[in-house]
Design a protein around this nucleic acid. Structure first.
Lengths: 110, 110
DNA sequence: TTACATACATTGGATTCTTATGTATTGAAG
DNA sequence: CTTCAATACATAAGAATCCAATGTATGTAA
């Protein structure tokens, strides 16, 4: 489990990237995917996820679609074109950030 | 200039690492060093720096020493042993975080 | 029938940084 | 000789982001 401060500013990028790679996803699915691909080190809580999703929807980065499963309702999120463009940009930004940090912290870029 | 959200949670690590590598440093010097080693992409503002330094001093990670230069006073910061131990840990944490993020974002680790 | 996993959501609070502001000295340029 | 930029410290109000806690409800396995 990483110290959570480091995650600040990256959650949106993570969520957007997952949606780009996997097409539509629903909230709970996103938490599980993040958990598994990060080998349990990033635990995306609901208190962080849902507000973030709602915000991105309001900003026009995502669209939603409700799907009924018996009595339960799932809410699927899909990237808009704006969202799709932004992901690429955000990921590049993050890569650049890592590069800078490697220099500043004098880490061997591995 | 990186989008500043990414920096959240990393500033303390950066400051501590610089102090570990350079021995004692004063505030303004730290801002300049960060600016130059990051090739102008990380601009550590005073509003972020000084509160951070004061906090770390209060936590026992740093000690201070005032040096007079004519009428001006410089405040030098040095790592305590606690601080020194923490840096190593923090840097490792950050390296691990990058590794995880590379996986999650499917970046080639370079 | 109890407990855990699935699935949505909100709210209050902590933390962190930014923007703006303030004070004062030193040095360079005009 | 004065004005502007750089040096050097600092605080304070506010925005933004995330976490912990809480709430509701269904499905499933023991």
């Amino acid at each position: 489990m990483h110290s959570t401060e480091l995650l600040k500013g990256t959650l949106q990028t993570i969520i957007l990237k997952l949606l780009q790679d996997n097409g539509k996803m629903y909230g709970y699915e996103i938490t599980q995917k993040v958990k598994s691909t990060s080998e349990e080190s990033i635990m995306l809580t609901e208190g962080a996820l849902y507000p973030a999703l709602h915000k991105m929807e309001a900003e026009g980065l995502l669209t939603t679609e409700k799907v009924k499963l018996g009595k339960r309702v799932r809410k699927y999120y899909t990237l808009t074109e704006t969202g799709n463009t932004l992901v690429t940009q955000k990921v590049k930004e993050f890569a650049a950030f890592i590069k800078t940090m490697n220099t500043v912290l004098q880490l061997s870029p591995a």
